[in-house]
Amino acid sequence: MGAQERAGGLPRLVVFGEALTDMVRTGPDSWRSVAGGACWNVARVAARLGAPTGWGGAVSRDLFGEEIVALSREAGLDLRFLQVVERAPLVAMVHALSPPRYFFLGNDTADLAFDPSLLPAGWERACAFAHFGCISLVRQPLGARLLAIAEALHAAGVPISFDPNWRNLMGDDYPALFERLAALATVVKLSDEDLRHIYPALEPEEAIAHVRGLAPAATLLYTQGVEGITACQGDTCMRQPAFRVEVVDTVGAGDACIGGYLASLLQRPEASLGEHVRFAAAAAAAACTRAGAHAPTAAEVQALLDASA
């Protein structure tokens, strides 16, 4: 159980979307399984950084699902939001890493069976932020369920965080869905890669201006890997350089960035935009120091912040 579950309270942050198993090719005839999924990664990061968090999603009742459940418990996620179902696991076959190349297996997998009616009573009233993104929004019927949740929360005044986290499942009709979610959001996190795929005909500056026009009151976090983060809020835009670390890999860095930002926002509401973005950049850098989608601890992030002070 997560800390807030043991205490009986409900989490202030709920992240909705997929968890999956990456089958990573390690040789001509060898593969390694790694628990992952962008939305689950975001939830795990926020929880490990101290923000009471629930991950709303479904996993399979097998060794792959059991690993996700175990890692969720270890991170301190509220397990009342996690559903275990009798379906096959969602699997991503990652057959190359540089650049990443992958495809997904499964047309009737566990993630699609997520049932919002099984969420704990009163969770919406306790929710101070909800996060959505990645392939969960384009895998039906799951995507329609999550969009309905996002719209209902927005109508109730609950802030929405959105990270498109573009993947090759997103077709030519995706920009319309992206814009629908972006218009609901209080926080939009976008990478340079996301922008290239969603708005291929626009220059980055034009695309950013267009997104800001969709949600003028939202905070936009634009990430560019080693070039750092540009954060825009109202009339203010600021630049946060990337922290210099020994990079093992960059898997999950974007998830750690938005997970770190949300954790900082919820735990330090009085802090400035610059302080939140600096914390997010440190979380992203800490994730890069370990293999796979590492969810850094608060101590790891603080060490980077102290070292660069």
Rank of each mutant, 00 (worst) to 15 (best):
V248D: 09
V85G: 00
P141T: 10
F129P: 03
W31M: 09
F104E: 12
G143H: 08
A253T: 12
A207R: 03
P120Q: 03
G27P: 10
L153P: 02
L305I: 12
A19H: 02
Y174F: 15
D108C: 07
A218V: 10
E246P: 03
E179K: 02
L169R: 11
I229A: 07
L214T: 02
W40A: 14
F16D: 01
G133Q: 02
I149D: 11
Q83G: 08
N165T: 03
H154S: 15
D78T: 01
L10D: 02
T223P: 08
L71D: 08
A256E: 07
F129L: 15
P216Q: 12
A128P: 02
P11F: 06
P164V: 10
A128L: 13
A201T: 15
F162P: 05
N41A: 06
Y174L: 08
P296H: 09
H95N: 13
V85W: 01
A183V: 01
M1F: 09
S60C: 09
T53E: 04
V188P: 10
T186I: 02
A281T: 00
L265G: 03
F64N: 12
S60R: 02
V158P: 08
D306Q: 11
F104H: 12
A88N: 04
A3T: 14
A43R: 04
R139G: 04
E193C: 05
A58W: 05
M93F: 06
Q224V: 03
G143C: 11
R268Q: 11
Y102C: 03
L112K: 12
V188E: 12
V45S: 07
A38P: 10
F81A: 00
F178H: 14
G36E: 04
T250N: 10
I198M: 08
G2I: 01
R290V: 14
A130F: 10
V15Q: 00
L265Q: 10
A58S: 13
A253N: 11
A35S: 15
M238V: 13
